[in-house]
Every structure is written in C-alpha cells, then in structure tokens.
Design a protein around this nucleic acid. Structure first.
Lengths: 107, 107
DNA sequence: ACGACGGTTCGAGAGCTGTCGAACATCGGA
DNA sequence: TCCGATGTTCGACAGCTCTCGAACCGTCGT
C-alpha cells in the first residue's frame, strides 16, 4: 500500500485551524520550502528539532489540510495542497508566502 | 490623558504572531466586525464570554498589531489597523475576511 | 457624593502545545 | 538475513492559553 494516511476535505477545514497551523515558525518554514520545491522528504527540512517533534509538526499541517504525503519506499515526501488550499482560502497562501520577516528595516 | 496604551510597530510584528492572534474564533469575530464597522465599543461584540476573557482577547489583538483603541470617556472603542496591516502583510487581511465558514456545501 | 456602568488586572484552574527520549515499524542494501 | 536509515507513536513534562470570579479603576448621571 502506497496510500494510507487520510486527509481532511478542505471544505471541512476551519480558517482558525489553518491559522493555528501556520502560527508556528517550524511549520511556516515547511510551507515556505514546499511552495518553492513541490516536494521534499520529511528528513530534509532542517527544522532544528528532533524527529519526534518534526513528525508532530507534519501531523498538524496534514490535519489542517495544508500538506499531503507521498510515500515512496522508506521516504515520506511532503507536498503542499496548493490548488485545494487556494480554492478554499483564496489569497491566503500567497499572502503568507509574501510576508517579510520582522525588523527588516531597523529604523 | 486620552492616549495611553502603546502599540507595536507593525514592522516588528512577526507573521506567526498575527497568525496566532487570528487563530481564535472570538478574535476572528472581532476582526470581521471591525472590518465592516470601523469602530465599536469593547462591550458590544457579543463574544459569549465574560468581560475578563473578552479583555484578554482584545489585548492579544492589540499586541499583535491588529487593533487600536480609542478611549472616549468610559468607552473603549476598537479599530482595525487596516492600512498598516495591509502594508505589512499585503493581502492577508483580505484573504482572512473572504474566508467562508467550513461545511457550507455538505456534499 | 454616591452608585451604576464599562473595562482592565489579578490569581487560579483546566486543557492544549511544543519538546524530548525511547520504542516501534518499514524499507533497502550488504 | 541482518542492519542502518527513515519516520511514526507513545509517554512525560514544562509552558502557554483560554476561561472564570473577584477586585479594582475611571467616567458619567443623579
């Protein structure tokens, strides 16, 4: 079985759930990477936390309808559910991805 | 003194902070109301929680740079810092306000 | 001056969140 | 077949979050 994990339908996902999922720096990092890369194995995000913690973050993202997982052998590739996300929350992902880090202009 | 409360500069606010502030239904409600009304006294949001809890939510919104407070006599009016917010996080507020509640189409 | 009204602040409690180490499961290569 | 690599799951724990009641502070009428 290559399929296994089940995902929520985006229609059933509340905005607050997505907002919460994106309110953590580690998870936001994952989303930013996936926005530019389409796909990446779980182990290659350099989140600076243990595997257990990383796995927890992947779960939060998955259950918020933000990511999908493709299992290929021992590797689990993460993908963004971009089209579905854009359809459910138009403009949200773009706004999030466009956001600059704080304190860019110290003045 | 009519002024008193101090607000963060939007440039110093992290996206994660804003996302967290908007990940609560009560706070999201406040934001939605203020988006259509420009200004409203703290007591008139019908959040379904006690004054103490409501005040807590107002504080979270204020500290995330999302709202401003105008004190007029005994009444504290809340306002959205819309222009600043749009400048700091283009498109974010619009996307949040446009989001439909979940499960609209049961099918 | 007094009391009602509008809000904030202060503790406190229940529950959720992020984090970890350890144990487990699977796949792939030697 | 056995072992290393990749991830998940399971407690456990510290810290944060939401919630409340009670106390407090200003303002406005009376």
């Amino acid at each position: 079985m290559t399929e296994g994990t089940e995902y929520p339908r985006l229609e059933d996902v509340e905005l607050t759930t997505v907002m919460h999922a994106l309110s953590d720096p580690a998870r936001l990092h994952v989303v930013r990477v996936l926005a530019e890369e389409e796909e990446r194995p779980c182990g290659n995000f350099a989140l600076g936390v243990t595997k257990a913690t990383a796995s927890h973050h992947y779960k939060v993202l998955r259950e918020a309808g933000i990511t999908r997982k493709r299992v290929e052998g021992a590797r689990h590739y993460l993908q963004l559910r971009r089209e579905e996300l854009d359809a459910r929350f138009p403009g949200l992902l773009d706004a999030v991805l466009a956001a600059e880090p704080a304190g860019v202009v110290p003045r």
